[in-house]
Amino acid sequence: MWRHIASNALTFLVVLVFLFGGALIWAQNEYVSEGPLDQPICVQVDRGSNFRRVSEQLAEDGAVSSAALLRIGADYAGKTSELKAGSFLVPEGASMSEIVDIVTRGGASTCGTEVVYRVSIARATVQVRELDPATGRFVEIAEFNPAEDAVPAAYTEVKAEPDTRYRVALAEGVTSWQIVQELGQIDILEGEVADIPAEGSLAPDSYEITPGETRADLIARMQSAQDRILAEAWANRQDDLPYESPEEALIMASIIEKETGTPDERFLVSSVFVNRLRQGMRLQTDPTVIYGITRGEGVLGRGIRQSELRAETPWNTYVIPGLPPTPIANPGRAAIEAALNPDTTPYIFFVAKTLDPSDGHNFAVTLEEHNQNVAAYRALEAQRDN
């Protein structure tokens, strides 16, 4: 009898072991398999929250099939204590394992609300926008000019939210003076900038910032970024260029940046200026004349006068030979690369095709051909003015 009981008990134990093993294998597969989400969602993790609250919210949102299994998996992976506050984008079909990694890896929030401080050549704006998880695109909530407009309630509200992200976006071709002026308008930054940074030394890009960060530290990040870009482009430059230093290449890049807003033309424009330098011709470029007038402090806002074209300033390339002494703006990576790797062309001249700068330029080899292109452009100007 006892032998029979022992045999049954052993059989029962074996069955239990197999059931447990099967359940464990199922749980492991469930944890790493594709999840039930049919479209991306934004998951907000509040400061002081815990995995229980987050897992229950994910289950309620249909992101996971079992809140308990998510917690068990996170605990087994040793990530329960690594939960990070923020707003995180959970993609369609994300597994429990992937979701745990998303909410514990840290770093900037990947969805939710962000504020973008845009510094462009003509004006500065503050944009409040929110990511739509379904489309992966940002939806604008509010936009204003901090120097001219009243601060909208939407901006004040998102500043009070702990997971709001902030970025400063610099357009290519802005001047160092403009950047310092606009950074002074950003109310989440602190401190002053003692001196205007050297023209051309700040890399146009998008910079993540945090409330309380100093303006000086942000400027230093922009300078380090430009140093890296210039060093890399200089190391990969063409042979036999008419520059004696990376600084001269940066000057040329700033002129290219201001001469064309058409990305495909940068290397062509670069070829024109390189050809002129090689032939000992003056660069004769209007943006340098304008910089000699404004010193980069704002936009000229009118046409260049004939007297200004003849005026001898250090930057007037109608008067001085070669390159001006400094850059005339902060060029982006593409303009720097164009300055150091120009197209090989015979072009010496160029003029705008139409009154719309985005339409690009007509390039010419001979003065006769260039004069024809100029005449066509002047005709368009006359048409507009009549």
Rank of each mutant, 00 (worst) to 15 (best):
E157A: 15
Y207S: 00
H361Y: 11
E130A: 06
P133H: 01
P342Q: 10
A94E: 03
Q226C: 02
P133G: 01
S271Y: 05
A85P: 14
P321N: 12
I304H: 10
N373D: 10
T260G: 06
R105H: 12
S81N: 13
G301H: 09
N371K: 13
A122P: 00
E192A: 08
F363W: 11
R282D: 03
I99V: 14
E381N: 12
A171Q: 01
G261I: 10
T366I: 06
V128H: 07
D343L: 14
Q127C: 01
S254H: 10
V180G: 00
L367H: 15
P91I: 00
A142K: 07
A23K: 05
E56D: 11
I256G: 05
E337M: 07
P287Q: 02
L16H: 08
T175D: 00
P36R: 12
E157F: 01
Q39W: 02
A220Q: 10
Q57A: 11
S201R: 13
A339D: 02
W26I: 07
H361W: 11
L300C: 03
A67C: 02
Q57W: 05
A94Y: 12
M281A: 03
I290R: 04
V319Y: 03
G21F: 02
Q383L: 14
F51E: 11
E172A: 15
T294N: 07
V319S: 01
W177L: 02
T164H: 11
P331E: 08
E60W: 13
V119E: 00
Y318W: 08
S81C: 03
P321F: 05
G73C: 09
G360N: 10
V14S: 06
Y166H: 13
Y377S: 08
P346N: 11
G107V: 03
V14K: 02
A253Q: 09
P314L: 03
V151I: 12
Q57E: 15
T156I: 03
E381K: 15
Q181G: 09
G107S: 09
Y347H: 13
R167D: 04
G191M: 04
L183F: 00
D239G: 14
D217H: 06
T294I: 01
R378A: 06
A153H: 04
R137V: 02
A59K: 15
L218V: 04
P91Q: 10
A59Q: 15
V128T: 05
A142C: 05
V319I: 14
G62V: 04
Q44V: 10
A382G: 08
S201H: 05
D75F: 14
A329K: 06
F20T: 12
V126K: 03
R276H: 04
N145L: 08
D46K: 10
I293T: 05
A108L: 11
A375E: 15
D359K: 08
L355D: 09
R266P: 02
I290Q: 07
N29L: 11
V319G: 04
A352R: 15
T110Y: 14
A364T: 05
D239I: 11
